[in-house]
Amino acid sequence: MITDNMFGWRTALRIIFLLIMTVVIMGPLSITVLGGFKSLGELRTSPIGLPDHWVLSNYAGILSSADFWRYLRNSLVISMSCVVLTLIVSGMAAYCFAQLHFFGKRCCLPISQSE
């Protein structure tokens, strides 16, 4: 590891592979994000690349619509209650599985790291 040349072929290969993967991941995502700044006509004619003129009305329309914020609030309520309930309920149940011995304990867990 230490003797590895900084610009050895191994490092180069590693970086090339990582960059290819980054392009594969970021390609679709960036097309979508940039597509939001294009007009519908431009999206049809040139789906990739930067928009010729930046159309802000798509994102502005979303951010200024009351519906969007209501949906966001709904998601927030669901996710928060999910987190709180899961933490409390499954934390308590997990304590039982970890610290107590009872009949049927082994059957209840499909995967268990420590027995």
Binding site: I88, V89, S90, M92, A93, Y95, C96, L100, F102
Partner: peptide, 14 residues
């Protein structure tokens, strides 16, 4: 206490 713990802690999940 183990029984009490078991019932109280297991009941919501159950």
């Amino acid at each position: 206490n183990a029984l009490v713990t078991f019932i109280v802690f297991m009941l919501p999940a159950f």
